[in-house]
């Protein structure tokens, strides 16, 4: 099968590599910035497009990967569905739950597979935590804490810095943890959120959530784009008979160069694993496309994650909890 990458930033190039690893052909790379499209296309001898619609409509394309800024996801999902292509959409699914619902309806109508990349479900450490909880190692789980983030992503002109587009750390980054908590502990009941969403004097965002689940578990979730450097993930789940903890800063490999050309940057620390979580996510998606299996995460799950993030931002504005 042949793949088109729509949006050739970091995630677009990563998904092109994963698709190629799965034996797929990357045939089209589209980006409004021509240079980005060309450099993404080069390793695969793919065709570079400035107009995403050209790539989406291209006859040889079977799968469209959408890795553009969040508010543009819907229009590309709709176009891809209309063109009869299967879709891999990066998270967040859309900038609003309404956009997500229209996307789901379009994929259903066109009878194409629509997958949303909630990759945290595929991370080895998160699988291990879930397995420990489900094995009864901590007894009955009562509280979970997740912490994720580091430096504010993107350069000064990046869409990440426009809260209307990205939704800040709550919508773009914490959505991973909102999804994972629901994946492991079931549906949420209500959510309370405090978010900084600062623009001046320095742009930074820090989000603190308390969420009550229907099964009575309490979740505390912190997302940060307020740190001067780095990226860190911490997880802690406590139960009646024990607790399980993870901290990405406690990694098997660590190094520090004496000099870096570009200064501090957003480095995602990844413990080396034989098959990366992104690769596993692709294998799961392809299993579904080829009719071999049902994926771990559905578009409906991704819609729920967007609804939770929306509720969080609504709570932050009202300074009161929001029912889900």
């Amino acid at each position: 099968m042949n793949v088109a990458i729509i949006g050739c930033g970091g995630m677009g190039r990563l998904h092109a590599e994963m698709a190629a690893n799965c034996g797929l052909r990357v045939v089209a790379c589209a980006d409004a910035v021509r240079k980005a499209a060309m450099s993404a296309a080069a390793p695969y001898r793919a065709k570079a497009f400035e107009n995403p619609m050209g790539a989406i409509k291209s006859k040889e394309v079977d799968i469209v990967v959408i890795t553009t800024p969040t508010p543009t996801h819907e229009k590309y999902v709709l176009a891809a569905a209309k063109a009869g292509k299967h879709i891999f959409c990066e998270k967040p699914f859309g900038r609003s739950s309404l956009e997500c619902k229209r996307s789901i309806a379009a994929a259903k109508k066109a009878d194409v597979k629509l997958f949303v990349g909630h990759v945290v479900r595929y991370f080895h450490e998160f699988e291990a935590i879930k397995a420990q909880i489900e094995s009864g190692a901590i007894g009955e789980a009562g509280w979970v804490k997740l912490y994720r983030g580091g430096i504010y992503p993107g350069n000064a002109k990046s869409w990440f810095r426009d809260y209307a587009q990205s939704g800040g750390v709550t919508f773009d980054c914490m959505i991973h943890d909102l999804d994972w908590v629901r994946y492991v502990f079931g549906e949420p009941k209500r959510i309370f959120c405090q978010a900084l969403l600062r623009k001046t004097p320095t742009q930074l965002d820090y989000s603190q959530v308390t969420m009550r689940m229907k099964n009575d578990v309490i979740a505390t979730i912190i997302g940060t784009w307020a740190h001067p450097s780095g990226f860190r993930v911490k997880v802690e789940a406590c139960g009646s008979k024990g607790m399980v903890q993870f901290d990405s800063s406690d990694a098997p490999v660590s190094g520090e160069a004496r000099k870096t050309a570009s200064g501090p940057t957003m480095i995602v620390p990844m413990s080396p694993v034989a098959v990366s979580p992104y690769q596993r996510e692709w294998e799961d998606f392809l299993g579904w496309v080829e009719g071999r299996s049902v994926p771990r995460v559905t578009a409906q799950d991704a819609l729920r994650a967007v609804q939770m993030a929306e509720a969080a931002l609504q709570s932050a504005e009202k300074r009161q909890p929001v029912k889900l």
Partner: peptide, 20 residues
Amino acid sequence: ELGNQFHKETMKTDDLGSMN
């Protein structure tokens, strides 16, 4: 949000409060 999240068998009071 508070509750008895861990010690239901041995006590009645809350054992965790998550505050904002």
